[in-house]
Structure formats: structure tokens, C-alpha cells
Design a protein around this nucleic acid. Structure first.
Lengths: 204, 204
DNA sequence: GAATTATTAGACTAACGGGTCTAGTATAGG
DNA sequence: CCTATACTAGACCCGTTAGTCTAATAATTC
């Protein structure tokens, strides 16, 4: 089965995927030429075509790869902390992963291209929003079992908390509003959301 | 000052802006050629260049125009309704304006292009998120004055409510998740958010 | 070493598209 | 009517780029 002749270099394939993801997110798909990808990857154009049938296929593969390797959750946090301590921690972790340039750029790219490549949208969801939501939902369920909270629908409650923060942050960043131009500082807003959440789900 | 000779037709200008906004949102900026815009507008290519110095300028003008004419809020709702009735009404109105194809497409376009055209991001914010938030905040303040709610920070509370719904809805739509693939139905989620909000801000 | 496949640098093709130009026609003010 | 400007259809220019091809070299298997 092993092909005769020189084997395809997996390293080069990875270099190509990296360069593609990097440039596509930074400059946009249409504005990036394959020549640029080749140069950034330190590889010849033909090698790209040895590995991927077309630019579109490279786009797909590039995004999917980034999604796999990004897969972030919050599983390493201390799930036994009381909600007053846990939620701000979780939020902080979450926010900082959204405020950085690279995740934002990836978000932008997925938004624009997921219409033509539905799998990409799903992969993104599975690698980002979904695990984070599920992770928080698990915490909420456990805290409820410990009688520290009274959450009936952990998944929806998690979504509600995360999206209230995420929605604001991402909207502001993507629309390009500077911190100064925003109606209120992000940190106060996160505090506000957290307090409100704790009030709504406090044990009776 | 009135120029001699044939005056420029404002009608044609509008046709061009419409066609541009339509095509740019539907197909994407890079994937739309000026030939297409000219045809869709029923105008010759040169007329486009009579009205706009470049494709980029046309993009800007097209988005800005759509933002102006879109400017939606909820000012026509009955602000004297009790929160239990008002919030679902407001949410419904809000959601339906987010679920339609056209606003979503515009959102996508603004997301991608606002980096190169900051004014566009600001115009979008001023025409959509901002007035809606302010409108709801006004209601919350009034309801608090009537002792039907106890909201201390109306603007943040409004943002929190709207973004928890908006964040989820838009994320799902943009990422392309069908209603079936979502973790829970949108309508249950909106109910959930509303109930939680009312609980958190109920009068003591 | 022979056969085979990968890689490279670069030339090449073919299409596309932003932007300009031309020649003719239309529409306004003076 | 005259002049100035707008509009149209189409040709045109020119840079860019996805994708192919070539000729030479490198890395494998047998």
C-alpha cells in the first residue's frame, strides 16, 4: 500500500494549512492569493495543488484545522468554587479569548464563509460556543446539586449568561467601537451581568 | 451655482446605491463586479463613476444609506404596558428583525468591512444596536419609576437582555445552524431569558 | 542504480475586473 | 440654437490571480 517514490511531506501540508489560516483570517479569503500562501508557507505553489484541489478546498481545510486545535473550554477551572467566585473567573477566561485579534478574525472569516461552506460553521460551533456552554452548564448543574444555586435549565442559563457577555463584546469589537465609544465599560458590564445572574438564580 | 448642462439624476444615484447594497450584501463585496452593479441598477458603468469615485466609495455609501433607512427602534410600542407583557412583545419585534435574511446579510457585510471602513461600523451601531438598547432602557426606567420593576442601571440591563437573545440568535444564524441542530428552540430560550430577567429585576 | 513520486522555480494561460476612453445621444440653462 | 453636462454602449487598458505546465532536482522503494 505504501506508495512508491518520494512520500508527501506532512510537514509541508501543515505549513500550508497554517499559512492559509493565518492569511485568510488576517487579510480575508478573496484578498489573499495563493502566491502569498505559498510564500508564507515556504513552499511552492505546485505543492499546494499537490495537497489541495482548489483554493476553496484549502479554505475549508484551513478553517477546520484551526477549529480542531482551538477547541477551548473551561474544564481546568475549579468546579467546586462557589458561584460568586466561579462566574467571574469563567467570564474572564471567556472574555479574554474573545477579545484577542485572532479569535475575532476567525469569527469574522467563519461568518462570511459559512454560507458557502456549511460544515465550517458547524465545526466552529462545535469547537467554540458549544463546549464552553456545556462546560458552564455542567458547573451550574453541580452548584445547583450543592444547593448553592437554583438553576432549572442549566444549558439555557449558561447560554443566557455567556451570550449576554459574548454578544456585547463581540458586537463592539467587530463593529469596531473603541472602548471609549461604548455606552459603558466592558468590565462594569460583566459585573452587572454576573450580579444579575446570581440574583435571578439564588437559592430561595 | 446651479451647474449648466444636464443635471445629474438623483434617481439613478439611488438605483445605484440600491443595487450596490443588494449585491454586496447578497454576494459579498469582492465577489460583486461593477458590471453587475451597473446591470442591476439599469445604468451604465460610467454613470457609476460619475457618482462615485471608486468601488470602495460605493461600498461605503451603499452601507451608510441602508443604515439610515433601516434605523429601527421600538418607539411605537405601548410603553405603559406591564413588563410581563412588554418584554415578550419587544423581544418578538427585535428577533424577527434579526432572523430575516437581509439584516443578517447586512450584519455580515458590516462585520467584514468595518475594519477597513470604521465609519461603517459606527453608522451600523448607531442605526441598529444603539437605538434599540436605548429604547428598551427608557422603558425599563419608566417601569421602575412606576414601581413595576427595580432596575438600577437601565442601559446595562437593556443590553444584557437584548444581547442574551441577540447573541444566541445571530450566532446560530450566522454560523448556519438549522433550528433542529440547535441545543434548544429559540422560542423556549427567549421565554427563559424573559422569565429570568423579570425574576432578577422584580420589585423587592 | 532504476523507477517513481514530490518539490521547486518559473513561465504560461485564460479569465476577470477596476477603471478609462470614445462616440453618439439626451437634457438641461442661457 | 448653443453650450455644457449626463448618460449609454462598448471597446479598451492593465494588473491580478486561479490554475496548468515544464524542466530540473530531491527523496524514497525495489
Amino acid at each position: 500500500m505504501a506508495g512508491r517514490g518520494r512520500p508527501r511531506s506532512d510537514e509541508k501540508r501543515q505549513q500550508i494549512l497554517n499559512a492559509a489560516a493565518e492569511l485568510f483570517t488576517r487579510e480575508g479569503y478573496e484578498r489573499t492569493s495563493l502566491e502569498q500562501v505559498a510564500e508564507e508557507a515556504g513552499v511552492s505553489k505546485q505543492t499546494i495543488y499537490n495537497n489541495f484541489p482548489s483554493k476553496e478546498a484549502l479554505l475549508r481545510a484551513g478553517i477546520l484545522r484551526r477549529c480542531e486545535e482551538a477547541l477551548i473550554a473551561g474544564e481546568d477551572l475549579d468546579f467546586t468554587l462557589p458561584p460568586q467566585a466561579f462566574l467571574p473567573l469563567f467570564a474572564d477566561r471567556f472574555i479574554s479569548s474573545l477579545t484577542e485579534e485572532k479569535p475575532l478574525a476567525m469569527y469574522r472569516l467563519v461568518m462570511t464563509e459559512s454560507k458557502r461552506h456549511p460544515e465550517v460553521g458547524i465545526a466552529f460551533y462545535d469547537s467554540g460556543p458549544k463546549p464552553v456552554m456545556e462546560s458552564l452548564a455542567r458547573y451550574l448543574a453541580e452548584a445547583t446539586a450543592r444547593r448553592e444555586l437554583a438553576v432549572e435549565e442549566p444549558l439555557m442559563a449558561a447560554a443566557q449568561y455567556l451570550f449576554s457577555i459574548n454578544g456585547f463584546t463581540v458586537d463592539m469589537a467587530l463593529v469596531g467601537l473603541s472602548e471609549a465609544a461604548r455606552p459603558f465599560p466592558t468590565s462594569s458590564y460583566v459585573d452587572h451581568c454576573t450580579r444579575c445572574f446570581l440574583r435571578a438564580y439564588a437559592v430561595a
